[in-house]
């Protein structure tokens, strides 16, 4: 029993890792006022590019870098449409998702079902990994796990304790006022969308080269959408995103844990999506003023409008 609990929690950490990465990226993006519904598509692009580069070069970290680049590149589409052309961000994000899923399917077709022989070793943190229970759960994990937590903390520090962070948050709250302070709103929003895209792609890379070590079309399985919901759940705070993501990782894992109990596997597969709705419902019972949503989220900003 003890072993089951430890391995469940360990796997919850693994399952939560891509969610945390994608959520952190979306938090930064939304803090600048741009809603990016393309996470799912960008994640798929990240997954496929990381996989292809890794399997052909044998260099997983090169794969990760290329994935981040690809994620940023494809996110430019959303940035251009929603920032420069002031298009509807919902529709533009959906288009990005369609395109990302489609392109990843096309590029990845020859690689479907190929196993990845290169292993990314878990990092065992000296001393800390010897702590009973916690050592195995928290300190014997894939590098992505540490990276995700580290980046979430960096993102928090960046948003709260740096000048650029204040500028990005101001852009999401009141772009007009921010611009009169001499801040280039367009540039910051582009930057935020690109950072968000990079994070989503990184999450995808984790899925293909670390989590499942293979590529198959549609392997993101709605994680991108859950990340968008987690952004709300985390109240646009990367710090809160850490435990929110791992809580959801737990829900993903509980599926497998409960399967032997004779519960319908389809019902269990429903759980993450159902839990998303339930959690959003619980949040809504909270005072909306304290939700802390960026005031101008999703609103196109037009320069020089009276």
């Amino acid at each position: 029993m003890e072993d089951i609990i430890i391995s469940t929690l360990q796997r919850a950490m693994v399952a939560g890792t891509p969610l945390l990465l994608a959520t952190t990226g979306e938090v930064i993006c939304e803090r600048s006022g741009i809603l990016n519904l393309g996470v799912e598509g960008v994640m798929a692009m990240g997954a496929v590019t990381a996989f292809i580069v890794t399997i052909t070069t044998g260099q997983p970290w090169l794969g990760v870098l290329v994935a981040i680049g690809a994620g940023m590149a494809i996110s430019i589409i959303h940035a251009f449409a929603s920032i420069t052309l002031q298009a509807n961000q919902v529709v533009s994000g959906l288009a990005l998702t369609m395109l990302g899923l489609g392109l990843s399917g096309m590029i990845g077709k020859p690689y479907v079902g190929k196993p990845l022989s290169i292993k990314m070793d878990d990092w065992t943190i000296p001393y800390l990994s010897d702590i009973p229970y916690l050592g195995k759960i928290l300190f014997t994990q894939s590098p992505f796990f540490y990276l995700a937590i580290f980046l979430a903390l960096v993102a928090w520090f960046f948003l709260e304790r740096t000048r650029l962070g204040i500028q990005i948050r101001s852009t999401g709250e009141n772009p007009r006022a921010t611009e009169t302070q001499g801040v280039n709103v367009f540039r910051l929003r582009y930057l935020s969308v690109l950072i968000g895209g990079g994070f989503s792609a990184l999450a995808g890379a984790h899925l293909s080269i670390s989590y499942s070590k293979s590529w198959i079309e549609g392997m993101t399985a709605g994680r991108g959408w859950i990340a968008i919901a987690l952004t709300i759940f985390a109240l646009w705070n990367p710090g809160r995103a850490i435990w929110a993501a791992f809580l959801f990782g737990g829900i993903f894992v509980v599926q497998y844990l409960m399967q032997p109990l004779g519960i319908s596997p389809n019902f269990l597969a429903m759980l993450p999506y159902l839990a998303t709705l339930i959690i959003l419902f619980l949040i809504s019972l909270k005072d909306p003023r304290k939700l802390n949503a960026p005031a101008m989220l999703g609103e196109p900003y037009k320069r020089g409008e009276r």
Binding site: T162, T180, G182, A295
Partner: peptide, 23 residues
């Protein structure tokens, strides 16, 4: 031209030209 949800200090930091990057 103030950010209503931000503190006074954050608002001034936003507009001041020599705000340091960190802290």
């Amino acid at each position: 031209m103030l950010i209503q949800n931000h503190s006074v200090i954050e608002n001034i930091a936003l507009g001041y030209k020599d705000t340091p990057f960190f802290f």
